[in-house]
């Protein structure tokens, strides 16, 4: 089997939500001497394909979640989740969480998986997170991006307060917001740098904010 065919199979394991298949790929990769970067690129390509199918609704959220799980499994095998390394410098860190007053974390969890899949170092603070906690963690981790989520209208004031405080206290940090009750206008009104309608559009929005050409933090796309 050629390297190209092998990597195609790696990508397909993500598309097909095939954890066993991925395990087999990793097992064989050892003997073929494939680089970690090549494997990661192939898996990310697979997730990209699923993400685009989620955008046109030919893939459902549960199917997408399973694909993200398989990719996470692959990332764990690559030992990237805990200490992502990039040959040309430090990885971009993103602090993410659901704002105070909201515990709906499905959207945030999907987004976290996608960001990790694209090679970002994600610090997930969970749900019902106060502005103090967000800012403390951003400072401590020297994160470049703060990502805030809410599915409810009641915590919107907490979100606004977090964005305002972050822009005032840490102006170099970009803030991106998302969630069912938000739109671009509200994001603009809050003073956020970006708005992601869903996990599908998020990588492009992060790229826009960072002013880079690649949606991945680790690999250049072909």
């Amino acid at each position: 089997m050629s390297e190209k065919e092998f990597l195609k199979i790696a990508a397909e394991t993500i598309v097909n939500k095939d954890a066993t298949g991925l395990d087999q790929v990793f097992k064989e990769a050892k003997s073929t001497g494939l680089s970690q970067d090549a494997l990661l690129a192939a898996m990310t390509k697979g997730l990209d394909a699923v993400r685009l199918r989620l955008r046109d609704h030919s893939v459902s959220i549960p199917e997408f979640l399973l694909s993200v799980d398989v990719l996470r499994r692959g990332l764990n095998k690559l030992k990237l989740l805990k200490s992502p390394k990039k040959s040309s410098g430090k990885p971009v860190t993103i602090v993410i969480g659901v704002v105070e007053g909201d515990v709906h974390d499905l959207g945030k969890n999907i987004v976290t998986g996608v960001l990790q899949a694209y090679g970002y170092h994600v610090i997930d603070l969970g749900k019902d997170v106060s502005a103090d906690r967000f800012l403390e963690k951003v400072k401590e981790s020297r994160a470049a991006i703060l990502a805030l989520s809410t599915m409810m209208s009641t915590p919107l004031e907490h979100m606004r307060e977090t964005v305002v405080r972050c822009k005032r206290e840490l102006p170099e940090v970009a803030v991106i917001v998302g969630g069912a009750v938000l739109d671009q206008t509200i994001a603009d009104n809050f003073g956020a740098d970006g708005y992601a309608e869903s996990a599908v559009t998020l990588p492009e929005e992060v790229r826009r904010i960072r002013g880079t050409s690649s949606i991945s933090n680790l690999i250049e796309k072909d």
């Binding site: 549960p62 199917e63 399973l66 799980d69 999907i110």
Partner: peptide
């Protein structure tokens, strides 16, 4: 159950 886990269970 939590929506995320339920969704995956619906498939598996």
């Amino acid at each position: 159950r939590g929506a995320e886990r339920l969704f995956k269970d619906c498939l598996n």
